[in-house]
């Protein structure tokens, strides 16, 4: 049998949980051995599931270990990493989780959640370590959940929610939004380094140059608009002293920055988000202000805020008018 044929047969058996061990492999009895082959199969599954657990710890806390593992197992079966750089794996999981939970709400059966019997080689990501050590807090920038809801269990939230306070579909959207935020957090964590601009540089601009001023965003900076209070839910779901309670209410816009090593998450007021997005797209200050279309919008404060947050690497003065 050629090398290629052997590896192909081995890989095919790995991917199919019900497949027998490959005929060309053997244990000490000289014949294929299911438990021996299962070590590899479980290593693959458990390792990939572990990568998702590392990337989405808050989402995992929200839905609970069992449901998360079921979703992760289904995702892993359908989505193998396309490279060995595991810190980049799993960006599509939020969308997958939303579809998975929607299917569960519609009454489709969940995948059987067999437990990984074998140990696996796992490398905790740096990101997971930072989070486990206590995510750096940025006082005042994150609003705690306003709901004040207590006594919410950690049951998988999409199923049999007899409290009736949050509609299942809303819970699913909440979870998907939190997962999107987590994914953006990890991307920011690993993004390229760059020196940030300072408020001093901003202050040094002459008024003539201000309207035409543009800014360049830091590679780690991200703007996200959510239909749910995703940033608040993300923050509150991390509190180990309180049960998970997803807030209802209006959506939130988030700014993620990483001026140095630590990732920061801020909630932006809606117009501030629109303004920042325009600036990120390359608009001048006057163009972004015009797009916001609110004469009362304090662009100066929000521009300073962007610079202070570490979102900006350079301030490009406009031409004197």
């Amino acid at each position: 049998m050629s090398f290629e044929t052997t590896v192909h047969a081995f890989a095919a058996a790995l991917g199919e949980p019900s497949a027998p061990p490959p005929a060309m492999t053997h244990g000490r009895m000289g014949a294929p051995d299911a438990r021996r082959f299962a070590v590899y199969r479980n290593n693959v599954a458990v390792g990939l599931i572990g990568a998702l657990e590392t990337r989405y710890p808050v989402s995992r806390r929200i839905v609970g270990d069992e449901l998360f593992r079921g979703m992760a197992r289904a995702f892993v079966r359908a989505n193998k990493p396309c490279s060995a750089v595991m810190i980049a794996y799993g960006g599509e999981f939020p969308e997958f989780a939303a579809d998975y939970l929607a299917a569960a709400e519609a009454g489709s059966s969940l995948e059987d959640d067999g437990s990984g019997r074998n140990r696996h080689r796992e490398e905790r990501s740096d990101a997971a370590i930072q989070r486990a050590a206590g995510r750096p807090s940025t006082p005042g920038l994150l609003r705690r959940s306003p709901s004040g809801r207590t006594g919410v269990s950690r049951r998988p939230m999409a199923l049999n929610d007899d409290r009736g306070s949050i509609q299942p579909h809303h819970a699913t959207v909440c979870l998907a939004d939190v997962a999107e935020l987590e994914n953006a957090w990890v991307e920011a964590y690993h993004a390229e380094d760059a020196s940030v601009a300072t408020v001093g540089e901003l202050a040094g601009l002459s008024p003539d140059h201000l309207p035409g001023t543009r800014i360049a965003f830091h590679p780690a900076a991200r703007l996200l608009r959510f239909a749910t209070p995703a940033a608040s839910n993300w923050a509150s779901a991390q509190d180990p002293d309180h049960p998970v309670a997803l807030a209802e209410g209006r959506g939130e816009d988030a700014l993620i920055t990483r001026p140095d090593c630590d990732v920061r998450v801020r909630v932006l007021p809606p117009l501030a988000y629109d303004f920042a997005l325009k600036m990120q797209e390359g608009a001048t200050l006057i163009e972004a202000f015009t797009a916001v279309d609110d004469p009362a919008f304090d662009f100066g404060t929000h521009l300073v805020g962007l610079v202070e947050s570490g979102a900006v690497v350079s301030i490009i003065p406009g031409q004197a008018s």
Partner: peptide, 14 residues
């Protein structure tokens, strides 16, 4: 592990 340092920057590299 080499692969853990194949991101673009941030805390791991630092």
């Amino acid at each position: 592990h080499a692969e853990n340092y194949m991101g673009a920057g941030g805390a791991p590299h630092r």
